[in-house]
Design a protein around this nucleic acid. Sequence first.
RNA 1: CGGGGCGUAGCGCAGCCUGGUAGCGCACCUGCCUUGGGCGCAGGGGGUCGUGUGUUCGAAUCACACCGCCCCGACCA
Length: 480
Amino acid sequence: MPESPITPRSQDFAAWYQDVVLQGDMAEPAEVVKGCMVIKANGYAIWELIQRQLDDRFKATGHQNVYFPLLIPQSFLHKEAEHVEGFSPELAVVTIAGGKELEEPYVIRPTSETIIGHFFSKWIQSYRDLPVLLNQWANIIRWELRTRLFLRTTEFLWQEGHTAHSTHEEAMAEVLRMLDVYAQVAEDEMAMPVIKGAKTQSEKFAGAVRTYAIEAMMQNGLALQSGTSHDLGQNFGRAFDVKFQSKEGQLEYVWQTSWGVSTRLIGGLIMSHSDDKGLVLPPRLAPVKSVLVPIYRKDDEKARVLEAAERIARDIGAKVDDREGQSPGAKFFHWERRGVPIVLELGPRDLASNNVVLKRRDTGVKETVPQADLAARIPDTLDRMQKDLYNAAKQRLKDNTVLANSIGEVEAILRDVTAEKGGGKFVMAHMKDDPACDARIKEFKATVRCIPLVDEFDGAGKCILTGEPVDRRVVIAKAY
RNA sequence: CGGGGCGUAGCGCAGCCUGGUAGCGCACCUGCCUUGGGCGCAGGGGGUCGUGUGUUCGAAUCACACCGCCCCGACCA
């Protein structure tokens, strides 16, 4: 793959993002399939690490993995009024199969609440069958008008958790537990600070009673909804007749939840940490943590350097870049734009002094380290990088969060913000959860991102639009 | 779907206005040389010029139609 320059963030953030993805060889547009992408080995390896972190936590909280069909009878979508209304515009529908027009078309799943609802109604009879705690790793299709690699594509990979409970209280605990799991993975593994909150009624998932989300801030100040957890109430229970007999002998509808994160997280990861030289990965999600570049001139030198390189790399689990015909400089650039946290240089000088040159991807700082110390220094450095990246992102979130006390202020702050130019802020303002208020915010292309679960500001106040009392500030921002 | 732009080698482009049988940079292959931040030199391979129809002795170039893609707006994890 040809390696071209990367557009600086300050010039055009959106172009920068695209360059980082392409030059990091993580994904490319599918080209022959509108709106879809090919996730390449470097991108998929990151997804596998994220999957592992999530899946371990799902298992630890009692969930089991399952798999439901890609195709869903069209009529299922119609059983929940809000659900069909929300998803209709983005459905792909199969009408012909086996050379014949189907009696009833199938939709390609945009999400699986409906088909899972159907099976829940078969499987659940008694309170003894509850809770049901399931998860599936799957691909889904939502016909999108405007796509961006990882952030929004027509087909994407995700996981969707689906659970059924005997009480609303228990379902709510599940909703918040999984929101916490998402926040943990985002912060501890991705080094991406997030705000946990509730979506407004007009922003919630089609068919949910209430949607909760984690929102992250990208380097251009735009918000990225990075995970959602829904309280479905009894909406799908009613739509699919999922009833159970309680201890008291009553027939009741189950209380359901669903929650998901997608390959969009990779986009969030990229836009949280990367720089004008390319991808920067937090060590915990770096498929390759260190690479050793050997440097030599003559053949005898080459033999000695490569031998030492192999020995050192074996001790510390590094990859040796021994490709022929590439200069060391070319190799440094190559790994730099792939986000490898640590690049080591080993040449004749180091051989003579028993040192190695160690370079950190995030700071760009090089230091000379005795070979004997490497085994300890590398995990140490990786740990420090992980923390530094989180702290830098946290600081940026803090620096770009501002208070506003009138709709005019909100608009002034966000007026000129775009994905390309950046300058985005999280604007904290008192606002009522009312579709009419959301609509006013949307007039200048921003949205209410969430109503934070934890109020870190000044508590109650008056809605900047209606003047009615509300108990805390909401997050308003432009978003992906 | 509305507005704008673009289809010429794997990628990025020039050539088109003024018709004469296709070129540049990167990448790729071979050899030599180099190697502490994108080495250099020499040689080489690769194109139904998006598709179709028309005009013409002759079309990448002119005309018409179609197809596709990208950007900007209205929907969205």
